[in-house]
Amino acid sequence: MIRTLPNSTSYKAAYKLFIVLFFIFLFSPIIVTMVLAFNNSMYPSLPWQGFTWKWFFGKGPDKIGIFHDAANLRSIYSSIHVAITVTILSTIVGTMASFLFEHEDFKFKGTLYFLMLAPLVIPGVILGISILLFANAVGTFFQNVLGIDLQFLGPGYWLVVFGQFSFITTVVTMTVSARLKKFDRTLEDAAYNLGANKFQVIWFITLKYLRPSIAGGAAIAFLMSFQNFNTTLFLVGSNATLPIKLFTQVRDGSTPVINAIAFILILVSSIIAVTTLFTGKKSE
């Protein structure tokens, strides 16, 4: 049944087979995508026509690698630009929210906490359209009543930032709260007794303690923002982010340059994930 109990060989063998099949299922699309980034062919498919770096560094005319692919590079830049802003905003607000829910007491705290969790169970598509509609309503109001044209309320950079921020902040809040729950509050009392004020205590004691989880939350926020599709789809203006730009290329078929992009993304996100996991483990 479990490792400390006697198990029949057939039970163990059946389980091993299941696990092997599962890992093949889990990794085959990823490995195939990565390997085909190096195939010297115009299509992301077999047969294998030899190893090449052209889908990364090729200058054309037939094989244009990602580092010379202006349109895709522009969308990568847009994604990074959005992700940095979302990461900064959601990390700051998320950390404040976890202080609010873990260390403060106020009326309707339960209701507000419930509301804070809501973005996790609202489909991303609905977050996208509702923010689009609301921004449009506010924009129209300013236009008609006050005669001010607020450009940032139209589809584009800021709406994408708002849309992603709306649910990523919840994730950051939960990541930071998990660590803040374990914080020994007598440390704060000690600092108060030594004459520190509230903000010195937060800055020198609590935030220092929270640093690993804030860094972890920021890393998750960056990855989620960079890869978001569903919410962004409705809010994006003329500067498409990478997932939006890739979507049409994937749907209509393209050269293995997509595999090269995927290769880089898989590598970067795995590195961030493993680093976050290990620094998180170490600090515990």
Binding site: I30, S269, S270
Partner: peptide, 10 residues
């Protein structure tokens, strides 16, 4: 940690 789009592409 790998985006849905890339998983589906695979």
């Amino acid at each position: 940690w790998i985006s849905e789009l890339i998983q589906v592409y695979g």
